[in-house]
Amino acid sequence: MSVSQNFFQLFGLAEQFDIDLNQLSSTYRNIQRNTHPDRHAHASRRDQLLSMQYTANVNEAYETLSSPLKRASYLLKLKGVDLSEDNSTNMDPLFLMQQIELREELETARHAAAPESSLEQIGSKLREQLQDYETLFRQQMAEISPETSPELLDKAAEQVKKMQFIVKMQHEVERLEEELLDY
């Protein structure tokens, strides 16, 4: 198996944050038509095992590239920054303040008479923030080259950490919605 290929190469995409999601989907389906175990159901056991390994890899690649956050983390990983190993908790204080405020709004919404609209508002604020940090990330990544200072990479990593924070908040909003709206 060509393990030297990274996920972008596997799908024939340029290694950058912006990708054509339609192309990703259709390429994914095309690749699956060839590698999926269903195509090899009457092949030898060895071939079936191989097909499974290939397909699992393709599925992971697709999952990673489909999600903007996972794609961003993966781009950092390709540049040598592994956020999963990052245990540091210090973050931009201004950002933390913003998040604390949103969290308070969430608590208020929990006890509000008509929580649906408050939750919708919080949800859209989070989406906006996410887009802002995605934009920053995109810009910073585009500027990185062998000539620029390594600090630029750290800055880009900061944006992704913030994005991870925001996505966690989004999950909490979803959970609260489920709870309050009787799912």
């Binding site: 198996m1 060509s2 596997l10 799908f11 390429t27 095309n30 690749i31 060839n34 590698t35 097909s51």
Partner: peptide
């Protein structure tokens, strides 16, 4: 397998 993936691309 590699060749078939290339074909898909």
């Amino acid at each position: 397998m590699d060749a078939s993936i290339k074909k898909a691309l």
